[in-house]
């Protein structure tokens, strides 16, 4: 408030000092604790999802392993590397802000944003693939296709990611044409892991109840459990991607500030705080990658 400021103008010789603080040290400490409390809040926010993941992975290990095997570990791994690189450039942004080197700051922020965008781009590719394979767990949100269209599609022009008309990858399961007239979630990729587990004797009676009806394997019951995996996958990665988008917004603001030469050895806490947020989002992915993409992969030989 302009009316508030007059009495305390004598503080304003330090750049960025707000009226309620006595000195920059107090302000920086406050902002830093505040940011960490926000991160604690974020950890608990994602924690609810991790609990849900834990409960159902414990209940339906084979269905979750099947689901995992249909995510593309290459894209997931690539994204992990991309995010780690962006974390490095973010850390260097803080480093150069502390040094007061404006040009390097700007460069590092641009690189961070670039890698963040690449991450989201890869996510789009992955989501598109799920859309084309009928693996989005919401009825009607998948690509609709009748058998007749499959043949036509193969002839006509199509983008590379649209060409895939066979619902199988990762080297297992029967190959079937993609037929999905209403865009439902569908699982045409077999249940090899359940068979393996059954043979190997490590399919517990408790898990068996969830996939079998009347003593026989029930593909519809199994599909529901895989669908659960994809639901959790989309909520977790979707929320993570949302955090990435927010992070890109923060970075854009930071870029503007850095361009103006706001930050120096005396005043760089906005850079540091944005960095904390960015690294946090990276940490979430560090856990999401093995939990969603990798666990259960060793079952396939």
């Amino acid at each position: 408030m302009s009316t508030h400021a007059d009495a305390h103008d004598h503080h304003h010789h330090e750049p960025g000092l707000q009226h309620q603080f006595e000195n920059m040290g107090q302000q920086e400490e406050s902002v830093s604790i505040g940011m960490w409390m926000f991160l604690v809040q974020e950890i608990m926010f994602f924690g609810g999802l991790f609990t849900a993941y834990m409960v159902y992975r414990w209940r339906y290990p084979m269905a979750f392993a099947e689901g995992s095997n249909h995510l593309d570990a290459f894209w997931g791994g690539l994204n992990t590397v991309v995010l780690i690189v962006s974390s490095l450039t973010m850390a260097l942004t803080v480093y150069y802000a502390q040094k007061g080197m404006r040009n390097m700051q700007v460069l590092m922020i641009v690189l961070t944003m670039l890698f963040g965008t690449v991450f989201l781009g890869v996510k789009v590719v992955e989501y598109t693939d799920k859309y084309n394979s009928g693996l989005i767990p919401v009825a009607g949100w998948n690509k609709k296709s009748t058998g007749a269209e499959v043949a036509e599609k193969a002839q006509a022009f199509a983008f590379p990611w649209e060409i895939k008309t066979e619902a199988a990858d990762a080297g297992h399961g029967e190959k079937k044409p993609y037929i999905n007239p209403r865009g439902d979630f569908q699982w045409n990729y077999g249940h090899k892991l359940v068979e393996q587990a059954e043979k190997g004797g490590y399919l517990t009676a408790d898990e068996k109840i969830h996939y079998y009806s009347d003593g026989r394997f029930d593909p519809f019951k199994f599909q529901e459990k895989v669908r659960m995996f994809y639901f959790i996958y989309f909520v977790m990665t979707g929320l993570h991607a949302l955090h990435m988008i927010v992070g890109l917004g923060i970075m854009a603001w930071l870029l503007w500030k850095a361009w103006l030469g706001t930050f120096s050895a005396l005043y760089y806490s906005p850079v540091e705080m944005s960095g904390l947020y960015w690294h946090f989002v990276d940490i979430v992915w560090i856990f999401l990658f093995p939990l969603l993409y990798l666990l259960g992969r060793h079952f396939i030989h």
Binding site: F185, R227, V235
Partner: peptide
């Protein structure tokens, strides 16, 4: 509080798109 936030979010998603945990 964040835990109830994510719970309500899951509830909302489950209610809207009819798929749920």
């Amino acid at each position: 509080t964040p835990v109830v936030a994510i719970t309500i979010l899951l509830l909302a998603i489950e209610r809207v798109v009819r798929v749920g945990i």
